[in-house]
Design a protein around this nucleic acid. Sequence first.
DNA 1: AACGATACGGAGCCAGCGTTCCGGTTGTCA
DNA 2: TGACAACCGGAACGCTGGCTCCGTATCGTT
Lengths: 186, 186
Amino acid sequence: MEKMRADARRNRAKVLAAAEEAFAADGLAVPLDDIARLAGVGAGTVYRHFPSKEALFQAVVLERIEQFAEEARGLAAADDPGAVFLDYFVRVIKQASLNRAICDALAESGGHAFKAGAGDDFRAALAELLKRAQDAGAVRRDIDGDDLRALIVGCLAVERYSPGSGHLVRIVVDGLRASAGEGDVA
Amino acid sequence: MEKMRADARRNRAKVLAAAEEAFAADGLAVPLDDIARLAGVGAGTVYRHFPSKEALFQAVVLERIEQFAEEARGLAAADDPGAVFLDYFVRVIKQASLNRAICDALAESGGHAFKAGAGDDFRAALAELLKRAQDAGAVRRDIDGDDLRALIVGCLAVERYSPGSGHLVRIVVDGLRASAGEGDVA
DNA sequence: AACGATACGGAGCCAGCGTTCCGGTTGTCA
DNA sequence: TGACAACCGGAACGCTGGCTCCGTATCGTT
């Protein structure tokens, strides 16, 4: 990875940049040829640097997910765990909703992607934040980290369905708060 | 549609039944050939009865959506609008989550499907139920019928991501209740 | 029974997309 | 500067899946 030829390194960067843009706009659905064209290289070149489209996708997405995890870790020792947690929750959704790549990654991460503990940092950091918020009495206790991931995916679906305002996420946040009633609906 | 040959009518019914089953299991993604095989007919026969796969899909789904709308209309004059509404909300989600076809239909209905006011009955009935619940002071007032559709789509995504329990929908329901706080998160 | 209309089946067409292959090009190093 | 290895581009392959075409079978009627 270091002893690459100069043009190879250059092309690799171009492919990554193009993939980042294309995936962000249209998600995993974007044809690989489009990425190649956008990068100004041939399809073969893409495959020289990444074994598959999926691998390229993950390379692009992992970095971003890792940023989220990093941010979450930085927030772990905050004063007001409840506010910090909820704030973080909506920020993640807001960011991700602007990036189809992340939406797709999160949505399918239950299936098979990220299987090798790839995005586990994120999950762990999220769970930690949640736990602290719960211990502080700010968030209801009947959910865990996996539930949270599911909720994020759901919020992203909502956001995609009716973009903009984001006031619907607030409904979820309100539902997340502690002391939420014993709903007795069927 | 009435002066059809007997075998034609029979095959049409077989196709519809097969489509209902296949779409319910795998959503719009199921190949049309699979439906044909399941129905015990050739692909050509399917196309004799429905101009496109999309048309077949809508024929299958519309019926179901109409049932939802019908049910909602029957509930419009209930005693306790709040409970009735929330109850209906979770019932729709529970039903739809068992049927990929409906999930897909709802998720894409913002895009182009149902363009000709096809599922508008449902939307209208849903909005009516919501309005009554709001007037009864049981549901927060800062949402409308479209928001509700978005929330349903979101809940379906949640349900698909982590199936079963359905206790996550309760979070949304709790968030939907009136008097939910002024969330001051960013 | 026989005939015309209607319907059937499934092979085949076409388009999109992931992936591979290979002849030509370009960077690198002696 | 020459030569070798690494790299590039894009044509081509295989597969999937929607849709069509047409020879054949079936139905309904006379």
